[in-house]
Design a protein around this nucleic acid. Structure first.
Lengths: 164, 164
DNA sequence: TTCAAATATGTTATGTTGTATCTTTACGGC
DNA sequence: GCCGTAAAGATACAACATAACATATTTGAA
């Protein structure tokens, strides 16, 4: 992987506090604690492992990575518990069509984000287009439905895999 | 279940050849054969079972129902094979956020459909809003991504579960 | 019609994802 | 120190999905 060669477009340019590395870790800790949850060693380890993946990671992928890092076996169910917390606190997102998770690098903003998942290389980017996601929510309401959580993902081919 | 008490709204009213019962079966057969695939007893049985569910059904749910109907054990992997064909031929859709499948009652029209899945009762309806789905595709293209298959689903509460 | 090739299904096994339950451990207040 | 609570570990199992190979059925050409 040559790293991100393109950035997700933002339809409405508002300030996203995107973080990385140590900054992301402390942002995650802050968000977690503000939402009344503890920031334990285990949670830090899981978040670090998750954030280190450059594509969506399954709970088992994360369990493996944490196990490696700690030199002991960490069970998947512990990881699931923590991932659920993360998703609840907006520190991570679940990619439904991949049964996998990604770290949220701007946990301070709340969006119905749109994932673009490359079927060739697995790399995943996301858009935060509140107009589009708002349209989806509105259409659901129009049909009498009360939307709680839109799932908007696009399977396809990323620029790298298309133009080699 | 008291049956469908509301219908999915259509943003752009074009003629949908919605079928049910025997009509749906023969439409399915026609679509399947036009796409160069055989319409076997087994496929008919799987389609019938799938169409009989009033909410998204897992491959195992379908395997159970077909097993019942035939008085013999039908293995899940046979069902998976056939479901994959159905999805390819637009006879069925996969609901990603539910790991389940629904029959497509108008296999003649091709849409990126939007599923509304009730987290309370599991009932699922769908919208065909080409404008919205087109917007999602366009946004992906805007980011340099080549969309193949948008996945647009909304988790929430259906009208029945909201207003008891 | 008969046979060979291609397609479909059956059988068995295994891999992956996700939960449930119960036990043990860590931490804080008393 | 003792106890209550929250977190994490251990184990088991349920649910979802695919792989590999054997058998059966269909198709179409000789």
């Amino acid at each position: 992987m040559a790293g991100k060669a393109y950035l997700a477009a933002m339809a409405h340019d508002h300030h996203h506090h995107s973080h990385e590395g140590a900054s992301l870790m402390s942002a995650a800790q802050g968000t977690m604690e503000r939402s009344g949850e503890q920031w334990t060693q285990m949670r830090a380890a899981v978040f670090e492992a998750l954030a280190a993946f450059d594509k969506p990671a399954s709970a088992y992928d994360i369990a493996d990575k944490v196990s490696q890092a700690q030199g002991r076996r960490v069970a998947a169910n512990s990881v699931y518990r923590i991932l659920d917390l993360f998703v609840g606190a907006n520190l991570a997102r679940r990619v439904e069509s991949a049964n996998a998770y990604v770290a949220n690098d701007h946990p301070d903003c709340l969006h119905d984000c749109i994932f673009l998942i490359c079927d060739t290389c697995g790399n995943t980017t996301h858009l935060d287009d509140d107009k589009l996601s708002g349209g989806v929510r509105a259409a659901a309401k129009e049909a009498g439905f009360s939307p709680q959580r839109p799932v908007i993902e696009v399977r396809g081919t990323c620029p790298e895999c298309k133009d080699p």
